[in-house]
Nucleic acid binder design. Structure first.
Lengths: 261, 261
DNA sequence: CGCGAAGTTGAAACAGGTCAATGCTTGTGG
DNA sequence: CCACAAGCATTGACCTGTTTCAACTTCGCG
């Protein structure tokens, strides 16, 4: 049982966990109000679909552009991000991946990834064999629809990011990014009051917003000096959410109940 | 049979065509090598799924953000684009929609659109009742998978655009946009030699690339003066494709066979 | 012929990029 | 326990790509 035929080995390391996988019925994510309820049949199917779990350390690539993996994943714990490397060496972060998000659909659908996915924190993923995705479509139309939901949801995230990078100035882009992440974490019950975990470096923020590192720093300092946010020690605190919303020019949307494979 | 309960009426007008709909088996798009072959059963299902055709004039909105349509569409003829309006009045074009692309999936999946779709030229769309999408998932897993393919494909387009807007300068963004559209048209056999139709105004290019109108104009002129492209009369001619590819820093990908609903 | 939409151009202002240097942590090995 | 390196954050000075403003022209069309 070699470590990985199909998982890329770049980065700090990709180590299958030794611990026993959690049964889907007792998956902690499923309990969250954000996720829709499953039927017994669906739960049983997903349980059979699940091939194991993958534990990776911060900085590892889980999926690499140009490769085709034998597995697809659901992120269970931790943060990740999808990104594209440009020929000139620049990196564009497309969106951040939070627990419950599905990874690697492109592998199943195009046979090759056109972006990469790197894990931002130590993380745990649920592993599904890509081949079986077809039987999911054949036997579980409800779940197939959920996969489509997840794909459309991810696209909506990228749409918003494109609009932000294309049309807002530095202050607005960063305000929007912080707000957006905070809102998503709220849906996952990972917010305490006005504070949440925030494992991004300024380089990540720069790569996500299309700004330079230096300008990102200066803009962040402005937000901090203006007492809109506090940032440090891997935590983010929104002091004046209304102020951020105004900067981002974004009143926010109410979250929707979401599916989950 | 009133003109439209469910189609938005903004823009020049949305008029159901009077002509008889083309049967799917004789759909001119399906003949293109770009599209995958259907089984008899699939073809029959799609034929039953099809509720009619919609003919719209240039400038009409087919789908509006915040609304929920009773139909979803496949673009049969013409050009369209997906866009988001920002509170400050700015418009970001997310991607351009060409024949064979699917429109309105968000309506089915989220119950409401988060972007709008406007038609750029006179256009013709194939209309499907949104309610029936569920039976497609139930009875035609192959087609359901195709819907997912189309969603993932659209997301890949937006990914590329985000990377372009976030990381390239004006020259690169515009070069990339022109190249990308040209490549997609090649797949649709709508290219003659080095020339294709090109119905975009400079405002569209500006809104797609995140540039100002003025700077878009100046950058386009640079490309023209540098004899990389010719542009005018609604046509685009790529004089030095390699030069554009270099500016865009993009060697290009070979196209993949694609599904089509 | 005249009007509105689209394209063109120059000048000035500014947001953001680039370069360069400094500090602050944290982890590692001697 | 200290020295050192590596990664990350911070800041100032300078430069440039892009925006904004304000004309003016050309094109398409009724």
């Amino acid at each position: 049982m070699s470590e990985s035929e199909n998982t890329p080995s770049r980065g700090t390391g990709t180590v299958p966990t030794r611990a026993l996988p959690v049964p889907c019925a007792r998956c902690p994510l499923r309990r969250l109000p954000a996720f829709r309820a499953f039927t017994e049949a669906e739960l049983a199917f997903v349980q059979g679909f699940k091939a194991g779990e993958l534990t990776v350390t911060a900085g590892s690539d889980v999926l690499l552009a140009g490769h085709n993996n034998a597995q697809v994943f659901t992120l269970l714990r931790g943060w990740a991000f999808r990104y594209i490397l440009l020929p000139d060496g620049g990196r564009q972060i497309l969106n951040f991946v939070l627990p419950g998000d599905f990874l690697g659909l492109q592998t199943s659908v195009f046979d090759v990834m056109e972006h990469s996915v790197e894990v931002l924190t130590d993380a745990q993923l649920c592993v599904f064999p890509r081949k079986e995705l077809w039987s999911l479509y054949r036997d579980q139309p409800g779940l197939a629809f959920d996969v489509t939901w997840l794909a459309a949801h991810e696209e909506a995230l990228v749409d918003d990011n494109l609009a932000s990078v294309g049309r807002r100035n530095a202050l607005g882009r960063i305000a929007f990014l912080l707000l957006h992440l905070f809102r998503r974490l709220e849906g996952l019950a990972q917010v305490a009051g006005d504070t949440c975990d925030f494992p991004l470096t300024q380089q990540h923020i720069a790569d996500a917003t299309g700004l330079s590192l230096v300008h990102t720093n200066k803009t962040l300092r402005r937000l901090v000096r203006g007492k809109l946010v506090e940032l440090g020690g891997g935590r983010l605190r929104l002091l004046r959410r209304d102020g951020l919303e105004q900067l981002a020019g974004d009143p926010g949307r109410e979250p929707r109940p979401r599916p989950f494979i």
